[in-house]
Nucleic acid binder design. Sequence first.
DNA 1: GCAAAAGTGTTAGAAGTACACCCATGA
DNA 2: TCATGGGTGTACTTCTAACACTTTTGC
Lengths: 244, 244
Amino acid sequence: MDLAVNPYVSVDCVLLGFDGEQLNVLIVRQSGAGGEDSTGNYKLPGSLIYMNENLDEAAQRVLKQLTGLVQVNMMQFKAFGGIDRLQNPSDSVWLERFHHLDHHIERIVTIAYTSLLRIDRKMEKLEGGYEAQWTPIGDLPKLAFDHNDIVHEAVESVRQKSTLDPTLLFDLLPRKFTAAQLRVVMETVQGIALDVKNFHKKIATMPYVIPLEEKEDGVNHRAARYYQFRRPRNKKCVKNNQNI
Amino acid sequence: MDLAVNPYVSVDCVLLGFDGEQLNVLIVRQSGAGGEDSTGNYKLPGSLIYMNENLDEAAQRVLKQLTGLVQVNMMQFKAFGGIDRLQNPSDSVWLERFHHLDHHIERIVTIAYTSLLRIDRKMEKLEGGYEAQWTPIGDLPKLAFDHNDIVHEAVESVRQKSTLDPTLLFDLLPRKFTAAQLRVVMETVQGIALDVKNFHKKIATMPYVIPLEEKEDGVNHRAARYYQFRRPRNKKCVKNNQNI
DNA sequence: GCAAAAGTGTTAGAAGTACACCCATGA
DNA sequence: TCATGGGTGTACTTCTAACACTTTTGC
């Protein structure tokens, strides 16, 4: 570790992608954990914060080290600081080894971020021996620390935020997508079922969803039209603004 | 200071009240700051966290020390951890003196909470020499650290949360309130104007707003009816939104 | 031609918006 | 009796929800 870290504060990133059916989370192995249990030791990507970086910068750094992606919309959503977060002793041991710390860490407050990504984005070479994998939310193993809780609160947070600003969800889709893909994303994230016909009517009224002439190719049924997302000029797709 | 504190993590509380016209914030004096400048030294109520308490507990403790209130809905809304939060040297000096710390604090990440209160709630005797006062949001002085930013983000957070769950706003009102009071609260927090007639229709459909027989007394115009808030059984006053 | 998924209209009810006048009270 | 703020009806528009059949394509 080159830089001084703050041994009390970390960031953790819940990177969410969509595989066509479910939300997936990017989890990493605790490499260097000693591998007592080769089936486990998964966690969210995260890091202690360096003393010379802001929280948002730390989250971006973790994302970049892990995936090579930059300029991604990372949203801080909650701090987790329960006194029992390090109750599993192997988590503390891993932390101290990984960060080459010379004293015992008794407590870490972590600032959790979430980000929506296209699951097929090519991951660049991973630094730090990370071994990352997308895992469907329903199939998550037991993660280190309280990371399972963090994932569930992240999903809840995304659900709420996307209710106020549905344009967030387009980050989960490729540049060109079909109406069905968009619908399934919305159904999955918001946990509701949408009427197909009414959904077509609705996207027809969205100024930021542009129908293309291009269609699917090579499917053994009627080809679906592609759409494109164009972020509106004024970012206020959110209802109800006006300053007090 | 009896208990061990974590010198890197604090909580700060944005307590919001409503005076009939504007949102007010409870700010406190940095007592023991040396009083170089008797006009300033205001800050949000907050504290370093103790090593044996959770974040939520720390926020409740600060609120209780300050106001005597317990069981108040405190909502964590954001962590602030910029590297320049302590850029004003007098803020660091105050912190180190107040908490009797023997080393220099270079950086603190604070977890910010917000809470909506009736502004007329009687404050109990304040511990720790706090000197607290409600201040209209528009008249806030320069506060210590980045507390002015924190206040503004708190208000924005409350605005968003109350869009999804309007029942939050009843915490700002007395037990009995008039339709006009409720309307002005909603207009102020959400930053919009509401049509009086339509507003009456709307509250008539809200199951959690109960009209009383009792009316205002001693006003020199037609007396307004009082209403009461009763929290619904299932807390989902949240719209089943699909505002794509 | 058939399996498989895409795409399309209409209607009824609910909810929201706009608008102007009468009512009760104390001074 | 008047000044003050409280309270109401109605028409119109928009949104939402429910519903079943035809189209295109590869095999």
